[in-house]
Design a protein around this nucleic acid. Structure first.
Length: 587
RNA sequence: GGGCGUGUAGCACAGCUGGAUAAUGCAUCGGCCUCCUAAGCCGAAGAUCGCGGGUUCGAAUCCUGCCACGCCCGCCA
């Protein structure tokens, strides 16, 4: 709790100093208490035991005695060698209602570029690929909440073999051929008959089969190879035909993401860096580096072993025929990205770790900076690894439909008074929010097993739990506005009563006081799951407050309680926006 | 074989820049709707923190060995 710490650290330092201890350790040792019932801040006294020749418990006791009173402190306790300090709820309430906590976004408003998703536009999102988009978008939102200026960017892979295969298939195969080849596979869901991502992926899959099994595969391979080659040399006509092939697919994918509240500010095409000459210039520069090497056929690589890379150290950036590789273009892309921002974050699957190392080391070799990378591990299904080919897959479109339907069921039970349209709106918000939350609430680096029952859980620990607390606060807001209370009185800062505060109120104040600490850590360390956890705790605290404190009692509004409720309401709302949860006002 | 990551209650997951009784949700058992939305609240039970060593006043957290699982090790993208 930095709010309290900055206020009382000098007190602790002087108390400790009076015992003859170097007080410079205090800044590091004075930390949030582990358990709420211990206090808000605690100072372990063990490190001072040796220099003072005293038992830690005795030191804590003496520091406690030497501490001066302060309005911010309710009590100081010495327990088991720890000095525990509890904030005074009245002081906390005063600071909070004055607006001293809540996204202390002052400071440096950084220009942050976050690249995420960048999935090949060859088929619909399944929940595995969507982890990237959900994590990335949440990172974007949380940085914005913190006050950074953020660009969310999608890197469009518009020139690789995958796009070439798709383009070739669309031009050379009929519907009957495609369906004939895919006869043994699960048919496309009729529900998505009008979504190009679901449709065109059939062509892609059929072509993949043809390439492997058909006796014509050699000629097909040759044609596709020529297309890839042409695209890598910036052939405008070929690139245009590629775009015609993938753009509808990409649009379909973006429609799915849009349903989850995920949008991008900019799309950058990979081919740009080939056609504008950046890649050629880059390869020239790389060729002049002292760690450059040349293979027998003229292909070129960097020996990154000399820069600390372990394992396979040769990093090829140029083929024997002089064309560039994906990684080469990625480096050119990164050089450009650095001209657009002063902080760069990529969201990548764990399979890209080596590649990211290579790109990072190369950028540093060129005198630049490496981007920060948030890696995530893949989502599995209980039946094993997700695979479109084997049909072991959950499409995001299907998951969202299911979540929506489940939410409608719940609503029919709880809110039979609602009309169909209102139900649909609420169900959509509840369903999509629950799906997002299910994925962001676990650490990115942790393998994640997708389970329908978890994704569709609307109880404690889910997005709807948070949404529900928020709607309670909204409901109170509406009711208070309806009373004949003087609205100018409500707008001004209410007097804080001297009476003892109920537990639920104190808990809520403490949670609110810790918001900025948590958001700062989450943004600094790229760990959205910690913010998800905070929102859950804040909601729980609001529920306790709601139980303990009647804001409207027998028709009269308690202005202090109402002010706290309002602060919680806005913090909840902004936090929900930060996580991509829809802040419904009623549900 | 090498590199990186993960291993915490029946299940899922937090805590990992070392600090006090390992947090939370699901599932299980019990209680609370004549009062601001019960998608809620209160309580019970449930953990050799993968296994072995080491460092430390103190280790789930740091070091090390082993085991299990995942990802990577293309002149593919």
């Amino acid at each position: 709790m930095e709010l309290l710490k900055s206020e009382i650290q000098p007190l602790v330092e002087s108390a400790l100093g009076s015992l003859g201890v170097d007080a410079s350790l205090v800044d590091r040792m004075l930390q949030p208490a582990r358990e709420a019932d211990q206090g808000d801040l605690s100072l372990p006294c063990f490190p001072f035991a040796k220099t003072l020749g005293m038992a830690p418990a005795a030191i804590a006791e003496q520091v406690k005695e030497a501490m001066n009173d302060h309005e911010a402190i309710l009590e100081v306790n010495a327990v088991n060698g720890y000095l525990n300090i509890r904030a005074h709820p009245m002081w906390l309430a005063g600071r909070l209602l004055k607006g001293d906590v809540r996204h202390a976004q002052g400071g440096s408003r950084r220009e942050v570029l976050i690249e995420h998703t960048s999935a090949n536009p060859n088929g619909p999102f399944h929940v595995g690929r969507a982890r990237n988009a959900i994590l990335g978008d949440t990172l974007v939102r949380l940085h914005r909440l913190w006050g950074d200026s953020v660009t969310a960017e999608y890197y469009v892979d518009d020139m690789g073999k995958q796009v070439a295969v798709l383009a070739w298939a669309l031009e050379n195969m009929t519907t009957d051929e495609v369906e004939g080849l895919l006869a043994e596979r699960e048919p496309a869901s009729p529900q998505w008959a009008n979504k190009a991502d679901h449709q065109r992926v059939r062509w892609y899959q059929a072509a993949q089969l043809l390439r492997k099994e058909s006796e014509k595969s050699e000629t097909i391979e040759k044609t596709i190879g020529e297309l890839v080659h042409a695209s890598e040399h910036g052939d405008e006509a070929v690139l245009a035909s590629f775009q015609d092939a993938y753009q509808p697919v990409l649009d379909g994918m973006l429609e799915t993401l849009g349903r989850l509240g995920i949008v991008f500010d900019r799309f950058t095409k990979e081919s740009v860096f080939v056609t504008n000459g950046d890649v050629a210039k880059l390869m020239e520069t790389l060729g002049a580096l002292e760690i450059n090497g040349v293979a027998e056929n003229g292909a070129q690589f960097l020996d990154l072993g000399q820069r600390g890379l372990k394992g396979k150290t040769e990093f090829f950036y140029r083929r024997g025929d002089g064309s560039s590789l994906y990684a080469t273009r990625d480096i050119a892309y990164h050089q450009w990205k650095w001209t657009q921002c002063n902080e760069l974050i990529n969201v990548l699957g764990e399979d890209h770790k080596l590649q990211a190392q290579q790109v990072g080391l190369t950028l540093e070799e060129l005198g630049g900076r490496r981007p920060e990378v948030m890696f995530y591990s893949f989502i599995k299904l209980p039946e094993g690894k997700m695979s479109t080919r084997r049909g072991n897959v959950v499409f995001m479109d299907d998951l969202l439909e299911e979540a929506h339907a489940h939410a409608v069921e719940v609503l029919k039970e709880r809110r039979p008074d609602l009309d169909t349209e209102a139900m649909a709106t609420i169900a959509e918000a509840v369903g999509t929010s629950a799906v997002r939350f299910n994925i962001i609430s676990v650490s990115p680096e942790k393998g994640f097993t997708f389970r329908w029952e978890d994704a569709l859980s609307f109880e404690a620990g889910s997005a709807p739990f948070i949404m529900y607390s928020h709607t309670r606060a909204c409901s109170i807001h509406r009711k208070v506005m309806e009373t004949d209370a003087d609205s100018s009185e409500m707008a001004s800062m209410p007097p804080i009563p001297e009476a003892t505060m109920p537990d639920g109120l104190v808990q809520l104040l403490r949670m609110l006081a810790v918001h900025d600490d948590r958001l700062a850590k989450v943004v600094r360390e790229h760990r959205p799951n910690l913010y998800a956890e905070y929102m859950l705790q804040l909601s729980t605290a609001y529920n306790s407050f709601y139980r303990d404190c009647y804001i409207i009692d027998e028709g009269k509004v308690n202005p202090f309680y109402f002010a706290v409720s309002e602060l919680a309401r806005t913090t909840l709302r902004e936090g929900m926006v930060g996580l991509g949860i829809v802040p419904l006002e009623t549900m």
